[in-house]
């Protein structure tokens, strides 16, 4: 049985879709079988970021409504043969997502893939709650600024109450992915410090992704950043995040922060 991951944030524009694509590709580069599912019905973007926009025939809503089979709707990536995309519908609205339908689709994906990554829409409405509903693991994408942090805090509250795991009395595994981190702005004090974000959200840190032109460039050519330029700073940060996700204990380095020989031995810890 595969693991279901929800990539969520509450706030829009923080990097959910970029991270879903980058993490999905990074996992597939290790040889794992990965399905990335776009839950943003009506405002789909994941197909663009993954360079599959011209290959979409059927989508998530078609599958839920029984108009297409799951295998017909899944799009295999051209570069990585173990990476698949299940696109969202651009023409339907979110009401077409039903709780039973989502449960069936996620359940079927779970049996065929090692990882099912659900790219959540922004907000806390139907699309977002259905995307997190069946997750085993949540990746909370947060920018180092107050509104994003508060929205993430709200989402964490929902993850602890509205998911199937939470309702069964279990605890959903939660990770913080700090994105768009700008070392220069952090230096000037224009951004929240990493430790402040960790103190407020008190969930373990999965990684810090630096703000970078590489991310924008990768999106524009329709490629996950981990595929577009494997040596770029954001790609390296996503690869490290994936290693931590798979259970490796790896100290998190803050981009731009010079760490001495001893500093490397003191990993960053979060509650």
């Amino acid at each position: 049985m595969g693991k279901v991951i929800v990539v969520t944030s509450g706030k829009g524009g923080v990097g959910k879709t970029t991270s879903s694509a980058a993490l999905g590709a990074a996992l597939a580069q290790n040889g794992d079988k990965v399905a990335v599912v776009d839950f943003d019905v009506g405002l789909r973007n994941l197909d663009l970021v993954m360079g599959a926009e011209r290959r979409v025939v059927y989508d998530l809503v078609n599958v839920i409504q029984g108009e297409a089979k799951l295998t017909q709707a899944l799009i295999r990536d051209k570069r990585l043969e173990s990476l698949y995309l299940l696109p969202a519908s651009q023409t339907r609205d979110k009401d077409n997502l039903t709780a039973e339908g989502v449960e069936k689709v996620v359940g079927a994906l779970r049996t065929h893939f090692d990882w099912v990554i659900c790219d959540s829409p922004a907000g806390i409405e139907r699309g977002a709650t259905l995307a997190m509903r069946h997750a085993d693991i949540a990746i909370v994408v947060t920018n180092p600024e107050v509104s994003s942090v508060r929205d993430s805090d709200r989402i964490i509250g929902l993850l602890d109450s509205k998911t199937v795991k939470a309702e069964a009395g279990e605890r959903i595994e939660k990770h913080l992915l700090l994105t768009r981190y700008d070392p220069a702005r952090a230096e000037r004090g224009d951004m929240l410090k990493v430790d402040d974000v960790l103190e407020i959200l008190s969930i373990p840190l999965l990684g810090i992704i630096p703000e970078s032109m590489d991310v924008l460039r990768a999106s524009n050519i329709g490629s996950p950043v981990t595929l577009a330029d494997e040596r770029s700073a954001p790609a390296l940060a996503y690869f490290d995040a994936v290693r931590r996700l798979k259970g490796e204990s790896l100290p998190v380095t803050i981009p731009g922060e010079k760490r001495g020989f001893f500093g490397k031995f003191f990993g960053r810890k979060a509650a």
């Binding site: 508060r150 929205d151 805090d153 509250g157 008190s202």
Partner: peptide, 25 residues
């Protein structure tokens, strides 16, 4: 557990919270 943004906790007696109470909670 920490009290997250958007959550509201009520009790008739005393309340002890081991974590933080978030902005908006």
């Amino acid at each position: 557990q920490p009290v997250r943004s958007g959550q509201s906790i009520f009790t008739e007696g005393d309340i002890t919270i081991l974590g933080s109470v978030a902005s908006g909670a």
